[in-house]
Nucleic acid binder design. Structure first.
Lengths: 136, 136
DNA sequence: TTAATGTGTGCATATATATGCACGCTTTTA
DNA sequence: TAAAAGCGTGCATATATATGCACACATTAA
């Protein structure tokens, strides 16, 4: 299948490109913090709400929650609106789903391209000769 | 629409539950580190490869890359296989896609439930009376 | 067998991030 | 107008994570 090599290279390059475009570190960073996930949980439960109320069930100080909400907003996960002296935050459901959909679409080709060893035989691992070439 | 309240509550509760079940902090944590993303990029480009070669294009020490690979493996993103004195790592494309698919499916209802303010009018924000109730 | 190569891990350290408190600002309430 | 409530931010600090080096272990090469 040596004549497939070029096509496969292009396939790899395209997959890499779209995967990289979509691997938004900031988005994942926003979602990898336990307290922020707890905030999201609260917002799903009680809907649009002001900072103090959101912070109520949580262990951290209100100011800390305020910062987390800011991070979530920067990542596009929440939106805010001011009313009087309080600021209401809410989840941006449509954006969250859209973002995740884009990521999935971009990543999908990897299911075909990057199959783990188990589904292959030894040949998946580069030969020693090929390894030497990679080193140069 | 007061008679919809109960149904809506159930809808919220279900959405919250499935969202929480799927918000795997470890998975997102693995993907939120720039160096780890760089490793993933390399793996897409060159396929299954040993640690030293993967580390070659990167700024960090080989031992650091080794640790990152371990984290990625714990998250299910990579798999490893030993051959002689070297250990080959590879992306687990199918698992990555499957995991992301599950997350998306669980999150999807939020697009309907958690619409941000812009699509609503003032009533989305709890009344002052409702706020008082929440505080109790 | 001896030397060389490839890995992972303990350890100390650097860097990033989360946290709490105090404060100033704005808006509401009395 | 004065007091109170709700927010966000500066700052110091705690905690988590990433990094590099040295080393021990396993495997291969000479």
């Amino acid at each position: 299948m040596d004549n497939d090599n070029q096509e496969e290279t292009r396939q790899h390059r395209d997959a890499m490109q779209s995967a990289l475009d979509v691997l938004d570190t900031r988005y994942f960073k926003a979602l990898c913090e336990p307290t922020r996930v707890a905030i999201i949980k609260n917002l799903i439960r009680i809907g649009a709400c002001d900072v103090s109320t959101i912070a109520q069930g949580l262990a951290q100080d209100r100011s800390v929650i305020s910062r987390h909400l800011s991070i979530l907003e920067t990542a596009g996960i929440t939106t805010s609106r001011k009313r009087g002296r309080q600021v209401f935050y809410d989840l941006d459901g449509p954006y969250i789903v859209q973002k995740l959909t884009l990521i999935l679409e971009a990543i999908k080709p990897m299911a075909e391209i990057c199959k783990p060893f188990e589904e292959y035989d030894q040949r998946t691992i580069p030969t020693r000769k090929a390894m030497k070439k990679l080193r140069e």
